[in-house]
Nucleic acid binder design. Structure first.
Lengths: 165, 165
DNA sequence: CCCATTTACTTGCTTTGTTAATTAAATTGC
DNA sequence: GCAATTTAATTAACAAAGCAAGTAAATGGG
């Protein structure tokens, strides 16, 4: 094992060094592990049809919000602009999305989902729903809803926060 | 906006297609967005010192669990073995970790963190704690603990699950 | 009007992610 | 004991992530 002084509780000195949290109690790591776990069946589903996880997110975001500029797509789909730029080229080539310059602002580029893109979403809708249902069954529907609320609140501080004063 | 038939409610047919969940209610996407949000300040911290997010995880996992074989490091740090292999070469070159073959099983390779590796963790411990404290302050300590418990339960089905039935 | 800044996106380069194929050391079945 | 299988790690090849630097179109003073 490891015999470093893990009990960095404090020894009287106020400038004592902080201890890192146990990785199971580190929020970023916990979120990552949880996500990897949940993504398993979805990756399987997407792999079969050759859609990447990232393109799947882009399609969903576009389908949900309609045409929007690239920066917003990137923010919503958790992608960086450089990655998105390159992905959109491929998706445009495959007619899953279209791009058009904004009339008012020549810098912006407005992205839309196409029929073909929407078809990809439809093709996976049933299986996707089944995967979610299985998770709900396993984890409990109520608890899952609570978890989703808490994750939302993490991002949007103005959310349901019951102000712990 | 988008005028596709979103009201896929059903039209009498029982084999009607399922609708995709709103991305804010998709657990994988919610987890990703939450993580990206929380990682912001940590990325900033790590960028300043040139440690990648992945190497940071490897160091933490090793520091926490002591020497362990590569497969376990990969599982704990949410990395695939090929990525880990490459990373460990670089980290070994930089004396952040050492590797030794397992005496009992010649296939395995046991990885350990070095003093230099531990120093990297120490160098960021205070700032890391401050970032966490800010989050705790903003989100609420109790709620944060609950969230971590729920994330743990998501992975470990045998956990605190109050058995829905 | 013009120059400096900012904003939106693109390009280049290095590191990771991902899949499949390969090597080598256990393990199992006979 | 030995062939067949399984397991652990590596390598290769290519897509994608991530950062820095670059381009081009707005914007904002003076």
């Amino acid at each position: 094992m490891n015999d470093r002084p893990h009990d960095t509780k404090d020894a009287g000195k106020s400038d004592r060094q902080a201890a890192l949290r146990h990785t199971h109690r580190s929020l970023p790591i916990a979120l990552l592990r949880a996500r990897e776990h949940v993504m398993g069946p979805i990756r399987e589903m997407l792999n079969k049809s050759g859609v990447s996880e990232q393109k799947w997110r882009v399609l969903r975001v576009l389908d949900e919000n309609g045409a929007m500029e690239q920066s917003h797509v990137a923010a919503q789909a958790c992608l960086l602009l450089p990655s998105l730029t390159r992905m959109l080229h491929a998706m445009e080539r495959d007619s899953q999305i279209t791009r058009a310059p904004d009339r008012r602002d020549g810098r912006k580029s407005i992205v839309s989902i196409t029929q073909i893109g929407q078809q990809i979403l439809r093709d996976h809708a049933d299986e996707s729903a089944a995967i979610f249902a299985a998770l709900e069954e396993r984890y409990g529907a109520t608890r899952l809803e609570t978890l989703l609320d808490m994750l939302d609140a993490l991002i949007d501080p103005s959310g349901d926060r019951p102000q712990p004063k």
